[in-house]
Structure formats: structure tokens, C-alpha cells
């Protein structure tokens, strides 16, 4: 599994999800740390997944550092 990369200055990240299981799957798939799952009141994206740090998806094989600069 690719190593996650974090920016420790960013305290949390939030991802919307259709259900709670999507949060668990993201945590396991990308090597993140899941801090909380909350209801949103939205009819499609019914859960919020809150992760520690700035979550980043693994980079593709042909990406460079420049691709990740804000």
C-alpha cells in the first residue's frame, strides 16, 4: 500500500460519505486516521468522515512534487 503523506499543520480533514462504512474503507484503504463520523442531514452524503491531518490520496506513478503544490 502506498505510504500516506500528511501535513501536520493541518489538524483535520473532512470527507463526505454515503454511509459510515465508506469512512472505514477510506481509513483502511489510504492509511488514514479516522477521528469521528457524524451525521450530516444531507439525503445523499449522509455522513461526514473526519480524519487527522491533511489527507492526501496516493500519487500516481507519473506524478511529481509539483503536482501536489497548492
Amino acid at each position: 500500500m502506498p505510504k500516506p503523506r500528511y501535513d501536520e499543520e493541518k489538524n483535520v480533514s473532512r470527507h463526505a460519505a454515503a454511509d459510515k462504512d465508506c469512512c472505514d474503507e477510506m481509513e483502511a484503504k489510504y492509511g488514514w486516521k479516522l477521528l469521528d463520523v457524524e451525521e450530516t442531514g444531507n439525503s445523499i452524503l449522509e455522513a461526514d468522515c473526519v480524519f487527522e491531518g491533511k489527507t492526501e490520496f496516493p500519487r500516481a506513478f507519473n506524478e511529481t512534487d509539483n503536482d501536489w503544490e497548492d
Binding site: V12, R14, H15, A16, A18, D21, C22, E25, L45, V50
Partner: peptide
């Protein structure tokens, strides 16, 4: 602290 923007991706829908 305010919560950050909500990210939405294909993983939000279980892939």
C-alpha cells in the same frame, strides 16, 4: 476551529 471544506470523491460513494 472551523471545520475544513468537505471533500467529495468516488470514495465518498464506496468506490
Amino acid at each position: 476551529k472551523p471545520m475544513p471544506e468537505r471533500q467529495i470523491s468516488v470514495d465518498s460513494f464506496g468506490g
